[in-house]
């Protein structure tokens, strides 16, 4: 730039920069992350809303980080196959998992698994699910109280999309003196069609039911989230009905526990950005009807720990009674 008297200065500057670079080299291990493609393990089968959401997040994440993000579907057992696989991956920031938080907090609390809630670093959330207790539009009951009355007389068959949902139904059965038969179901749409076809009485839905409210094919009896649901503001939340805990849940992004602090910070920042991107938000909000709730790592970690504690407390009296 200033050629007249600068040669020595330029040389020194170049030398200094080279030295600095050399000094930084050992640390480059951390700063050069991500140096290779990332893996996103998705706890849902291909197709369907959750998988699609995961693929969109993967795209946005890959734009944020400048590395490809490969999606691998590891479906089964309400997310526990994904979580088991994830817990055994290296905490190097190259393998992350997406599933409902119940795979991380509820499942290890109610059933013996090869991982625990603490085996993961929680990074962020993509959206909030809209958990509801639902019935067919043709059911002989339309409200929570009518359902209880009907159930005391006839018993109820309950479509369960995941074992984690049995917890609250067991509680209802016990408190209200209703005999509930648990029918395992393959997924959200299976549940909806079994209700519409009249094969079961009530079911848990994580949100697919919202598309069927308008034409009255499906009714919401109660919100199972901590608060009332956006699409059914007239229906009580489970805690309003005198139950000890709500079952709010989120699509959570997590990594094996023990990520280097710097990588964890960069990864969660990139994931938060990806989850807040207009495409992801639009898919979640407008097309799936899921609020695009994106939490900080601290918020989601606290939420997961609190939920795990809730399940453990609920499971405990049971085990002493038996």
């Amino acid at each position: 730039m200033v050629p007249a008297r600068a040669p020595t200065l330029t040389h020194r500057l170049v030398l200094a920069m080279l030295l600095l670079l050399g000094a930084l080299m050992p640390a480059a291990h951390a700063t050069s992350w991500p140096a290779k493609p990332l893996n996103l393990l998705v706890g849902f089968s291909p197709g369907g809303g959750a998988d699609t959401l995961a693929r969109l997040v993967a795209r946005q994440l890959s734009m944020e980080l400048g590395q490809p993000v490969t999606v691998r579907n590891v479906a089964g057992g309400g997310g526990i196959v994904m979580a088991t696989t994830l817990s055994q991956a290296e905490p190097d920031g190259y393998t992350i998992g997406l599933g409902a938080n119940s795979a991380f907090d509820g499942m290890p609390a109610i059933t013996p698994l090869r991982y625990q809630t603490d085996d993961f670093d929680y990074l962020t959330t993509v959206s909030q699910l809209q958990n509801a207790l639902i019935a067919s539009g043709n059911a002989p009951f339309g409200t929570w109280d009518e359902m209880l009355a009907y159930g005391r007389e006839h018993g109820l068959s309950y479509g369960s999309p995941s074992p984690i949902t049995r917890d609250v139904l067991n509680l209802i059965a016990e408190r209200e003196g209703i005999r509930i038969r648990f029918i395992p179901m393959r997924g959200g749409m299976d549940v909806i069609n079994s209700l519409i076809g009249g094969h079961i009485d009530i079911a848990w839905s994580a949100g697919v039911h919202q598309a069927f409210l308008r034409d009255g094919k499906i009714r919401v009896l109660a919100s199972l989230n901590e608060e009332r649901l956006r699409a059914s503001p007239g229906k009580p939340a489970i805690q309003e009905l005198g139950y000890p805990m709500g079952y709010s849940s989120y699509f959570v992004l997590a990594a094996p526990a023990g990520l280097p602090a710097e990588i964890k910070q960069r990864l969660s920042a990139a994931l938060v950005k990806a989850s807040q991107s207009p495409r992801v938000a639009q898919l979640a909000e407008q097309r799936m009807g899921f609020p695009n709730v994106v939490m900080t790592p601290d918020e989601i970690t606290r939420f997961v720990q609190r939920t795990a504690e809730g399940y453990r407390r609920q499971a405990a009296p049971d085990s002493t009674a038996n």
């Binding site: 291909p46 369907g48 969109l56 097309r287």
Partner: peptide, 9 residues
């Protein structure tokens, strides 16, 4: 199932 995903998108 994959085509269903495209519908949702």
């Amino acid at each position: 199932a994959l085509i269903l995903g495209a519908f949702v998108i």
